[in-house]
Design a protein around this nucleic acid. Structure first.
Lengths: 314, 314
DNA sequence: CGTTGAATG
DNA sequence: CATTGAACG
């Protein structure tokens, strides 16, 4: 393993107090041997299936960064999906060209309408999908800017009363090598969403690759210089909300800590619930009256992200 | 998968009659649907533990191309080795730098004397090893020519009455891209062995990456243009024998067909015994009186090669 | 830690 | 078909 690789791993894996990356630590000031500390878990409350004004939920959307669709299928991700039975399933990081898709998913009768976007240049990189029970009025790919649309990151489906946008936002990378690109993405993506929103309200879901506030990740202190929690990325998300959108989970559960959707595979982060909330349902303000619930399905396994589910009344 | 990759696979996987790489074949001339044909297996006879003049075997050498030592260890290759209990164990294609060796093998008390050679440039490529119960008088690496000695292909151990050379001979490659290099290797390696042989007789073992005669592979006809059975490689081996060396297995079993040491992982070749004899014990002529037996352990699993074992009386 | 394609066999 | 390191996350 290269020194560089090792170093970066530690940096990105959240510089938390549990980290034990040294050999024998200098026993100074009577510091204790690391005591494991019981993990603080999060249990998502039962689904609320009505709006605040009493209308029944009639649309269920699930979003899941699958971190490699083929491996995720082998790990029985589709069994969980069948159980959840959403009206629309949005997937990110499929890492799979359309021709290499497993039959298990291409043949799924529950979702007669399937849309795939893959990276044009790099095989097995990025990629999103949207699977629908009912046919959208229209489906588009990308955000209408050449420079952003070659990595299979966005699918937009138009439904009668709203747009559904699923996105896999570019990771700023180890050492923030792609933070500059991310900033231009954030600007252009926000413009794209605002443009849509002028026509019809929208639901944005997916891996937005940012933990917005300190409450949205276990170790905010140690991650201010790491991809997903830089000031720039957080500010990008703040500006998105300022443009007339709402983080549905945080709106419903403003004080809820320890609610994460991603845990690095390293250092048993998931079992310790050392995670990040990177996956969101972001709604146009005018759609908030239709919101029933925004769920984190953190017991569903098969990826380093867990799925999230939105209930609303169209 | 690239078109190129697919094509080459078919070429290298032995153009045998069982190959079914077409879609619906034109049903011409009443040709039958491929009928499976029962595989012709080979059962190695019991070990003979005496020389022809009645001396008891007192040296046992095992050679195994492990096709990745780390995976082979996980697949319990070492359990088989413990059972076999050779005096010397020679391994080829370890694909492992010395520092990445699994503890299971570095800590083996059965072999207090261990020697490792790895590729200097490409990590995880080539590599051979020799593990000994008794300490050799001397051990050297390579064949004394810069151009050949950077890929970790040869270890030579000097014992009181003979040299033991283990080798992983360069593969000529898909499309024979490295056949030219192989030819120079064959010349230089032969010179190296002849030089040793002038001082003391030798045992050469390992993956020589050539099937010598038609009897030494299942599908000679279809492989004349493939790595391991070109005229050039076969001629190289013939010339080695002409220089005063003997293919011990073939000497003992001149007519034995279907005796192979390698089967491609593709198309269930091993279960059909569609294989190649690529692994040898080659002995200096003057050592032939010491030969007891030359075995093919084709039931040992863990690699695409099986181990071979030599019994002789030093 | 775990996914993916590339190179190699 | 299977192993390996590289890129990426």
């Amino acid at each position: 393993m290269s020194k560089r690789g090792k170093k970066k791993e530690e940096a990105a894996a959240a510089a938390d107090g549990d980290k034990d990356n040294g050999a024998a630590p200098p026993a100074k000031k009577g510091k204790k041997e690391k005591e494991p500390e019981a993990p603080i878990l999060y249990e998502d409350p039962p689904d609320k299936l009505t709006t605040n004004d009493g209308r029944a939920a009639n649309m269920k959307i699930t979003s899941w960064n699958v971190d490699g669709l083929r491996a995720w299928v082998k790990k029985k991700g589709l069994d969980w999906v069948r159980e959840e039975s959403p009206d629309v399933l949005c997937l990110q990081e499929t890492k799979c060209s359309e021709k290499a898709l497993p039959q298990d998913i291409t043949s799924m009768p529950e979702f007669p309408h399937k849309y795939w976007a893959g990276s044009e240049d790099k095989e097995g990189y990025s990629g999103v999908a949207m699977l629908c029970k009912t046919k959208p009025l229209n489906v588009t790919f990308g955000i209408g800017k050449e420079e952003h649309d070659k990595e299979g990151r966005v699918i937009t489906a138009e439904f009668p009363t709203f747009y559904l946008v699923t996105a896999y936002v570019p990771n700023a990378g180890r050492g923030l090598v792609r933070l500059d690109y991310r900033k231009t993405w954030d600007v252009d993506f926000r413009a794209y969403l605002s443009g849509l929103d002028e026509k019809k309200p929208l639901v944005l879901c997916g891996d937005l690759n940012v933990a917005h506030q300190e409450i949205d990740l276990k170790n905010p202190k140690g991650n201010r210089k790491n991809a997903g929690f830089t000031a720039e990325e957080r500010e990008g998300f703040t500006q998105l909300l300022s443009a007339g959108f709402v983080d549905s989970f945080r709106e419903l559960y403003p004080e809820q800590a320890n609610a994460y959707t991603f845990w690095t595979y390293m250092m048993n982060s998931r079992s310790k619930n050392v995670g990040w909330r990177l996956d969101y349902f972001v709604l146009s303000s005018k759609l908030m009256s239709a919101l029933c619930d925004s769920k984190i399905r953190n017991s569903a396994m098969g990826s380093d992200h867990c799925p999230i589910t939105l209930h609303f009344a169209v």
